[in-house]
Design a protein around this nucleic acid. Sequence first.
DNA 1: CATGGTTCTGTAAGCGCTTACATTCTCATA
DNA 2: TATGAGAATGTAAGCGCTTACAGAACCATG
Lengths: 335, 335
Amino acid sequence: MNIYDVSRRAGVSIATVSRVLNGNPNVSEKTRTKVLTVMDELGYTPNVFARGLGLGTMKTIGIMCSDSSDPYLANAIYHLERQLRSHGYDSLLCCTGPSLENKRIYFELLLSKRVDAVILAGSKFVELIDKNNDYLIEAAKEIPIMLVNGFLDAPGIYSTVCNDYQAMYGAASLLIGSGRRNILYLYTSHSYSGLNKVEGYKNALTDHNLPVRREYIHQCPKDLTESRKLLEKLDGLGLKFDAVMTSDDSLAVGAVKYAHKKNIRLPQQLAVIGYNNSILSYCTNPEISSIDTKVEQLCTTTVDTLMRVFDGGSVTAKTVISAEFIQKQTTNFSI
Amino acid sequence: MNIYDVSRRAGVSIATVSRVLNGNPNVSEKTRTKVLTVMDELGYTPNVFARGLGLGTMKTIGIMCSDSSDPYLANAIYHLERQLRSHGYDSLLCCTGPSLENKRIYFELLLSKRVDAVILAGSKFVELIDKNNDYLIEAAKEIPIMLVNGFLDAPGIYSTVCNDYQAMYGAASLLIGSGRRNILYLYTSHSYSGLNKVEGYKNALTDHNLPVRREYIHQCPKDLTESRKLLEKLDGLGLKFDAVMTSDDSLAVGAVKYAHKKNIRLPQQLAVIGYNNSILSYCTNPEISSIDTKVEQLCTTTVDTLMRVFDGGSVTAKTVISAEFIQKQTTNFSI
DNA sequence: CATGGTTCTGTAAGCGCTTACATTCTCATA
DNA sequence: TATGAGAATGTAAGCGCTTACAGAACCATG
């Protein structure tokens, strides 16, 4: 069944049917009602491919991420999808996995699907954004590129980020204020947000006249066991630390595990601060203080911005969302 | 740029270009090479809409789920997407949220996008599958409908499920075998798998000559705090229990929290078993024994089955994946 | 060299929609 | 009643591809 069937039965031309389909105001109320009735009777659904051909768009947004099963990204994708749908857009999901190679290939693939925009979710696209970003910039001339937790200054590229620097600065200051002097910092990767986080940590130390020591800053795979082992290793090397800050909750969970294993009291002997305030930070005992990066707000803002771009409105290239420190037990010194 | 540009430059007809595009064998090697070279030179990408119009498909699969941020579903979606892509299919994600109303609306929406198949991921579609399933059955006449952790016997509908019954039966038997007599069972919902799980629990009791008692079976929202509170309440009511089995890890985490709060030793005084063996079950101390439902295998099988359906091969309507009990500390009685 | 079977290529008719432009209708105004 | 602006509708030409069918080219055979 197609537009001709509807037009025939409604006694109008296909142009009129199409107008009704597209909400064109140049249709008399009587005709519109008639056509809609017939469509309903026939159970007619317009063919999206034909529509796409004619309009050049199918109202679909590509969402790219490295690993959608990561709790943080999973949450982001959920909110992005729902938000986009509420605006009548579909979401084409594309998980690249860890391979950098894939990121570029899949990006091109997404473009070839003629999506109306691409959202790069998560800060794992740093290599793609910072280096060899020529094709990103090129693509942005055609369609909007939205970065969630990433930044690249180029026309057609819009960013929504969290104020990671301030968040980490604040959290570190809090620890220092409560007397901690040997604060370990564990991070998963030097992504866009990753760099801001570590800067926040370093500057907080400096501003409080504490030394920034190399041996207190370590990279660690995003894994509970790995981070636990790393702490055990550092401990074994004789490093003294009374607090652990992390760029991700999973590392903080590892820190709590380490403390359990070594019978270290939390937070008295060791304070722990996670990042993202994911469900993981609520699973441990004691629960881990963490930084709520407002994923939902981040996603809502991203989609709102995108819609404004589509509408041709004026849009700022970078929007910053304020994180919030969530005080839980691993920094509750009043116990 | 379109197929005409390519054909002109390559000195062939558009039909030949189209043949090359579609891997039609009736093209001489020389011509094929020539056309491919020109495509490369021009950076030509076929228009997917036109292609969709001509072929009637765009190689896109709809993935529906209630909440993609749930760790279990997030994992499933990740694997489904990657698996589908490896077969050259795109994934159109559709999160319905909790509303049942939405599930139906979104399902229709997905169909109207002319997807080649729909995958219903997760057992949250039970209302949709068990009742008012007329339109599901109707849709399955047009395109394959794949159920992940759900079952409906109708032509065109294919299921991949986990042997939840056996898994739960085995886990309960294990507890009974180690002397537990008062085993609590907490579940989030009576979904397809939910029903099988509780049956496994009940039958294990019965087969070991233990009574199945109503007051030992409780529904609970999928939430750490809720399950903790529920246990506290039951405890307060004087109910005695020496083990907790759950239909989801999050409930089991709540059980561990309860034990911590009440200074109950795990597993000596209380054994705990989760479900899905998600990252949550590794976060607590002690770590929670759980049932690995082999999400990746579930997803791979689902996609493989779908591909076989597309290829017109013979396909069984229901494939069962074997879960595996993962022994961790909350049931390690040898300590 | 004619013949017929293959293999390869081209022509043209869709696929179902959008939309510029042309046409018809409506109706207030002169 | 004639008139012309504006609203409503129709006609037809795409959009870029696939593919049935026709036709050309090639080649081994008698």
